[in-house]
Amino acid sequence: MSTTARKRLMRDFKRIQQDPTGGVSASPVPEDILMWNAVIIGPDDTPFEDGTFRLILKFDESYPTKPPVVRFLSEMFHPNVYPSGELCLDILQNRWSPTFDVSAILTSIQSLLNDPNTASPANVEAANMFRDHRSQYSKRVRETVEKSWL
């Protein structure tokens, strides 16, 4: 029952509780340690400020060799987030390293919010708007922030 992945996840959870990172929170669902709920608070001085964005992280037994599957539950308007909530982030794909833990993943996602990569957009409309009409983009993001409170 106590596999490498589960042991590692337990340690990650202990780490997060002892050493909480600013603006992120994560905890496994009570009956399944491979399934985590997380909340990212939007970084200050950005359009995402004050937003509480919910995510779900799905690990499998290959963790930490393989990255978890991360998906936003809140509606997002971001160049690197697909409409389904899935993320396009390099460290969750080809640049994954087993040294990353849950809080590192969440911090990376938090910093991705205000620093999108428009070179390979998952949401083309958001990417174009981010590039050409920044104020309009901010307005759309504010809408998602307000929706994230519900």
């Binding site: 997060i16 509780q17 002892q18 050493d19 909480p20 929170s25 994560a26 905890s27 909340v39 608070i41 004050d50 937003g51 509480t52 307000e146 409170w149």
Partner: peptide
């Protein structure tokens, strides 16, 4: 070192949301 600082509980997040809504 963070002394006796636990993680964010759901209630706290709710409170934070309330505050955010108030600010908004």
């Amino acid at each position: 070192k963070r002394v006796a600082e636990g993680p964010l509980t759901p209630e706290e997040i709710e409170l934070f949301q309330k505050e955010a809504i108030f600010r908004q």
